[in-house]
Structure formats: C-alpha cells, structure tokens
Design a protein around this nucleic acid. Sequence first.
DNA 1: TTGCAATTAGAATATTTGTTCTAGTATAAA
DNA 2: TTTATACTAGAACAAATATTCTAATTGCAA
Lengths: 176, 176
Amino acid sequence: MKMVVEKGPGALTVAALAKGMKAPIGSVYHRFPSRDVLLAEAWIRIVESFQKEFIETLAKDGLQAALNTIRWVREHPREARILLVYRREELVSGPWPEHLKGRIACLSRELDSGIRSFAKKQFGHAGKETLRRATFALVDVPLAAVRRHLQDGESPPAVIDEMVRETYLATIGSIK
Amino acid sequence: MKMVVEKGPGALTVAALAKGMKAPIGSVYHRFPSRDVLLAEAWIRIVESFQKEFIETLAKDGLQAALNTIRWVREHPREARILLVYRREELVSGPWPEHLKGRIACLSRELDSGIRSFAKKQFGHAGKETLRRATFALVDVPLAAVRRHLQDGESPPAVIDEMVRETYLATIGSIK
DNA sequence: TTGCAATTAGAATATTTGTTCTAGTATAAA
DNA sequence: TTTATACTAGAACAAATATTCTAATTGCAA
C-alpha cells in the first residue's frame, strides 16, 4: 500500500514489492496466487472498512454520513488515496478472482439498500429521482470534495465540511 | 478514441490501433513519434475544446458555466469519457512530450485565472477559501455529478442540472 | 532426532507490447 | 518521364514484467 500510494499502482511490480518487503519473489507467490489477487484483496479490505462506517452512520443520520466520509479520509489518507485517486481497474486489471465475487456483490448490495432505507425513512419513498439525489448528496459530492486534495497529497481543509453540509441541505431539502 | 472509449486505454496497443485503422504499424509511427505523444495530443485537444467553452461562459455567468459542463458532456459523450473516466496518467504514462508542455501550462493558467476573475468580479476578492468554494461549485460538483453516468455509458439525466444549480446557489451564496 | 510442511531464493521462462528497420510502392510536381 | 517525398508493410528487436520451477533451508511437532 505504501508503494502504491507513493509511486502509483504501475510501480508495484512483483519484483519491486518483493524487494520492498526484503523477501524473495517466491514468497509473494507462496501467499498469493497472482498479483491481481493480492491487489484485489487489499482493495476490497479498504472498501469494506470504509463502507461499514458509512452504512452504520447513514442508518442514524444522512448528513453525518456525508461528513463522516471526510473524517474517514482525514484519518486514513493512505487508504483513501488508493480508493479515490486510482481507478479500480488500475489496481485489479483482470476479472475479479472467483473467491472475492461474493464479497464484491455484498458490498454493492449493502450500499444500495443503505441508501434505499435512508430514502424511505427520510421521505417515505425511494423513487429513481430521490435515489439519485440521495446518492449525489451522500456519496458523489463528499468524494468529489475530497478527491482534489488527495491527489495533491494534502488533508482536506475545513471548508470542505461546510460545503458538503450546504450541498447536502440544498439537495436533500429539495426532495418532496 | 473509439477504442479507448469502448475498451479502455490499456486496449489501445499500437498494433490494435493500426489494425483498427486498417493501416500498418509503420504508418502510425510515420505520423507520431510514440504512442505517448499520440495520446497526449488527443487528450490535450479534448481538454482545450472543453475548457475554451467553459472559460468563455464563465466570463459571463458562473451558474451557466457549471451547467454548460453538463451540456458539453451530453454533446460529446466520447470525449467526456476520455476526459473524466480515466486518469490522465493512464493515457499518457511517461512525462509530457516537450512540444506540449507549453499548451499544458497555458491550460492550467487559463483555468486558474478564469476562476480568479470570476471570484473578483462576483465577490470583489479572491482569497483562498473563496477560490476553493468557486472551484468546488464550478468544477468539482458538475464533474462529479456527471462522472457516474459516463462510467455506465449513459447520458446524464435531467435531475443533474437541478442538483448542480442548487449546489451552486448554496455554495456560492455562502461567500461573503 | 527425525521428518514433514512451510518458506526462501532467484534464475529461467513466457508473454506482451512499444519501437525500429529495411525494402518496396504510390503520388505529384518538374 | 523523372525524381523526390510521402507512405505502406510487417518482420525483427528490445524491454518490461508476471509467473513458474527446482533446489535449498528453516521451523516445528512427534
């Protein structure tokens, strides 16, 4: 993860990884069947840890969930960078390893149903447009707010919290 | 561009490109010194065409500029995908070709000064926080709103215009 | 101690892909 | 017609890099 964060996913060759770990290449392949699986497992672990917090917070309060994303990024700059700066396909180039497909599917289902529940609880319905608005305010905007700073290797400044809050109120407030 | 949009930048090998064009590999290298230069020129051309419109509109009206971004994406889905779905480094892996450095620098300067002028005109000042807010409302939010749909290969739905407008008013309205 | 499994080591292999090279062909101006 | 330039062709080359393989070595349980 350190290498990916510092030099990008392309720099994480198996040889470089082994060297960085002061271990032989064989040891890498002793534990992981391929580079793709190694990266897929790292990636999914990060997503799970982030999403767990997000879903839990969302069940209580939408705005808090949006703001919590920013807090999580500040607390886990390394993981955040891996999640938000690079495309998933840059890390895991091939198809998903069979043994991870279940976890992936679960993640996407959980997020979906988390947002759906939020919409139902908050507005009494979960139509297409309402879901889009919720996703925008809860997911897209906080991530966008934070991305530019991650790219520069900086911690998101305080204004961002304000802007995400304002955006949230404006976007969610317009739902009838 | 068609191949990048459909199969991703990794699929655009020089051999595949040549085949797709029904031309020999040699013809590619007759016109471009390297794959990187080819992609860099394509990329920069797209950015220039997008940014030109953006800056021109921004000089008249901020909200219009934000909304214009969405319109541009709807009208140029292919170019938009290349710009917004992939990281620039995925297209141009090495350092920028010398003969393009000027144009790159110009683009970034133009955007900066465009936003700065906007802030000055609108609020009479261009402090750090004001610039951040402006960048958020004018650039980050419209792009984020649109990105999810580009990834799925869909045209951005109409709600997005509303949300960008609401966000703009909320974020820019808070500047004193 | 003995024996088995886990691990180390890294050289060798296979593959993919950008780039070069050389020889030939078309085109258009003089 | 001549000639020079632009272009076609694609085989050959080189570099990068994931993966495999085989032989040693270590650690641990019986």
